[in-house]
């Protein structure tokens, strides 16, 4: 998925006369549109943009907002949340990509492993997912044991520090 990072440096704009009329400047183009909230749905709005009328659904999530526009789901995340998530990703730890149950562990501390080697198997929603090593490394530590439930983004396997 192409990521579009939007921050105050690349967008600017003004909210004109009222909350309902919005003007956005993006990529040196100016867009003006009207937004009308519909009473029966808090999350549901009608808009008019460049003469075209449409409907949009907006909901807020823990990390930002989600939109349903022209049948497509869009997700925007507050940049604070994106940064904190990214800082977790390092070559030295393998994280659980989702909450799940550990059903098999293939490595132990001291094992020399190659990039792509299977480390452990997680199960969620009746499906198994094999975690693989991101690089050639030595296993330092394995967190968790078979049968244990783990949350998402939890460090499961620690690898020796990358030589820089």
């Amino acid at each position: 998925m192409k990521e579009i990072i939007v921050d105050k440096n690349i967008i600017s704009g003004n909210i004109l006369s009222s909350l309902d009329l919005i003007s956005v400047e993006h990529d040196k183009e100016n867009f003006q549109f009207k937004i009308k909230s519909c009473d029966h749905f808090e999350s549901y709005r009608e808009y008019e943009l460049e003469g075209i009328k449409g409907k949009v659904v907006v909901t807020s999530t823990n990390e930002g907002h989600e939109y349903l526009i022209e049948g497509h789901r869009f997700v925007s995340k507050n940049i604070k949340n994106v940064k904190s998530a990214n800082s977790l990703h390092s070559d030295d730890q393998v994280l659980s990509p989702m909450p799940g149950k550990i059903i098999k562990i293939m490595v132990k501390p001291g094992d020399k492993i190659k990039k792509g080697d299977a480390l452990l198997v997680l199960e969620a929603m009746k499906m198994e997912h094999t975690l693989k090593s991101p690089r050639d490394a030595e296993v330092l530590k394995v967190n968790g044991k078979v049968g244990e439930m783990v949350q998402g983004e939890v460090e499961l396997v620690f690898l020796d520090k990358t030589k820089k």
Binding site: K2, I15, F33, G64
Partner: peptide, 20 residues
């Protein structure tokens, strides 16, 4: 992954985020 926000979609999202 091919599904991308069009210019208009993007403007709309920016505006609505700003609004909220």
């Amino acid at each position: 992954k091919k599904i991308k926000a069009t210019k208009n979609n993007l403007a709309l999202i920016l505006g609505l985020s700003q609004l909220s």
